[in-house]
Amino acid sequence: MATSHTETHHPNWLQHHFSSPFQQGESSKLGMWLFLLTEVLFFGGLFCAYAVFNAWYPETFINAHKSLSWPLGATNTIVLIASSVTMALAIRSMQLGSKKGTLILLWSTMALAAVFLVIKYFEYSHKFHLGQLPGEYYTYEGIAGTNPHIFFSVYFMMTGLHGIHVIAGMIVIGWMIYRTSQDHFSSDYYTPIEMTGLYWHLVDLVWIFLFPMFYLIG
């Protein structure tokens, strides 16, 4: 664990109960990964629901998925991938000690996240307009197969939960932008940005699966 010569080096961001910055950084990272694990299982329930109902009503799922616009979904996928790249580069930039580069890249990530949400907004409002709503509010009649509302229940639950995560991510990125501009970070200490990055990549990961599940194969 701790190496002895770290005792003398005690920067102000090092908490008292850690014996070295290394120990603190590793702890944060492990904590973050465990948090991501809980996120995976949180989404997991919905993945399970998707799998069960997809197996029960395969025709419905195939018919219903055609009502989603894959060009919009694909655009959103590309937008999120781009935001992941900028996020990863923001961390790299801070590793190199460039505050300006980090700020630009964080702002780009934020902007791409906003684009994602705007596209999602148009998709949602179109669905609302058609009456392709979850569960008992479903009124659309153009989809053949049993229980098409279940497809939309799962669709709205999963993309909605994902959307909430995107919004939460934007809030955290905003906080990181603020802290970066206040010179809280340096090439020695950038753990919070790194953690934000991990979270943001997970949001991207989830979407990488949601996209084919709903837009491509139903």
């Binding site: 809980t38 996120e39 995976v40 299982l41 949180f42 989404f43 997991g44 329930g45 919905l46 629901a49 109902f53 009503y57 979850p134 569960g135 008992e136 509010y137 049993t146 229980n147 509302h149 279940i150 229940s153 799962v154 709205f156 639950m157 939960l161």
Partner: peptide, 27 residues
């Protein structure tokens, strides 16, 4: 615990929006 969390979210959604995932009458 996260699975319980999503279960309860679905249960609440079932009551609020009638999403029907656990409702036999809705498939």
């Amino acid at each position: 615990t996260p699975v319980l969390a999503i279960t309860l979210v679905l249960l609440i959604m079932e009551r609020v929006l009638g999403v029907g995932i656990f409702d036999p009458a809705m498939g």
